[in-house]
Design a binder for these strands. Structure first.
Lengths: 229, 229
DNA sequence: ATTCGCTTGTGAAGGCGTGCACAAATCGCG
DNA sequence: CGCGATTTGTGCACGCCTTCACAAGCGAAT
């Protein structure tokens, strides 16, 4: 499930706060989900909770980290050291969650040799050489869209089986290779859509349109987590 | 629907290629989705396609841009000019899709005054002043997790109704404010989960585990777009 | 003008995720 | 030892999304 990392982060926060056990309701609130959903998720991976008490924070962290495969530190190759690549290379959140950026690549000779947070940018042609030394499990593509498919093919060719793509394009990979995409502009466009919808609704306060307007009493902090679809 | 931006990007690519019309199957392939799904999505927004011919590319672009509210350029405020904030401030993909980064903010006095791609970083306390001049519709939070909730509150206070959060934490916003979250580390953890699952499957080739192993004939480029859940 | 091929739009079926509500289980206390 | 409070785990129903399959409509060629 895609929510496990969220639970894991909330659990780490609880552990730092000194909490020893947590109820499903408490953890659900910290992760921003429904408590029933959380219980079902945890039971789905055969979890160990004690009825009447809750979940043991340390044990649950261990379990989730095992399921997510975070017990072993995975090597990440980052391709495309532009604006976004720089930020990703220096992003502290990766190292703190058990990921090690093993190598940086770019196709631009002007960028090769640059040093970023302890790593030297190498030319993409050196990818097979580096991959032979270190077992690269995950590749991150932060190149322009035009180069992304070529880079993906090169990554697959050296045995990478998981790819995170930041380029705004559709990539095709062989079966058995997992692929996730993050498009920053699309996120903004989705927000723009909701802005547009809200503007249209306020223009017609009566509401001939079938917009759900939820005129319930509770105002203020109503805990809206993420807008649907 | 969250897929409209994807269709829009594919349509722009087709327009640049000189294509005048496109069939649902062609556009679906370019966007990486099922053709039936695409037709249903387009029909859902009351679309104009010609049977036997396909969709008019230019008309469809216009329609989708209207629905997404991209006909007007929306001003974006970016808070948190760290590693990621720098990258976002310089990201060309925003400007090219009709978004204008109107202001940069940070709480660190050392960063205030810095100039990034034509904009000067201002202190977060100046947010109300700037918001009074420019109508900020969308706020982007790229701060550490500890500061994110405070920043979100400040953004809401000056009238921002859509927030894109890059901080790894759960934010609470009043009803009526839309909120999307992008957590880069979570994406990697999801990939790690699939890596772990694949490793477990190859260790047990017979497969007592109920993993779908799809031993169909088609090998190679099988068009696997994104892994589920 | 008519026929034929092609494409859209949509009705129906199936699957999946979500949330409610409740039984089972555990701990603490008298 | 028994009882009540509390919390997990889960059966069930509901609704959404996806997918298939097909009728309706449009253009082109003869």
């Amino acid at each position: 499930m895609a929510r496990l990392p969220e639970y894991l982060r909330a659990l780490h926060n609880l552990a730092d706060s000194g909490d020893d056990t947590v109820s499903s309701e408490g953890l659900a609130a910290a992760a921003g989900v429904n408590s029933a959903k959380l219980r079902k998720d945890l039971s789905h991976l055969g979890s160990y909770g004690t009825r009447g008490v809750g979940y043991d924070v340390a044990l649950l962290i261990e379990q989730i980290e095992y399921v997510l495969g975070l017990t072993q530190c995975r090597a990440v190759a980052l391709v495309g050291i532009g604006n976004l690549g720089h930020a990703l290379a220096g992003y502290a959140g990766f190292a703190s969650r058990g990921f090690r950026i093993a190598a940086l690549f770019d196709a631009d000779p002007a960028r090769v040799g640059e040093e970023i947070s302890g790593l030297t940018v190498r030319h993409i042609d050196e990818l097979p050489t580096i991959a032979a030394e270190e077992s690269i499990a995950i590749g991150v593509i932060a190149t322009p869209a035009a180069a992304a498919q070529t880079v993906a093919d090169q990554l697959v060719a050296v045995g990478v089986t998981s790819i995170l793509n930041f380029a705004p394009c559709v990539l095709t990979v062989p079966e058995g290779v997992d692929m996730r995409k993050v498009d920053l502009a699309i996120e903004l466009q989705i927000l723009s859509f909701h802005e547009h919808r809200k503007a249209a609704l306020t223009a017609l306060p009566g509401g001939l349109v079938g917009g759900a307007e939820e005129t319930d009493g509770r105002a203020g902090r109503a805990g809206v987590e993420a807008v649907g679809s």
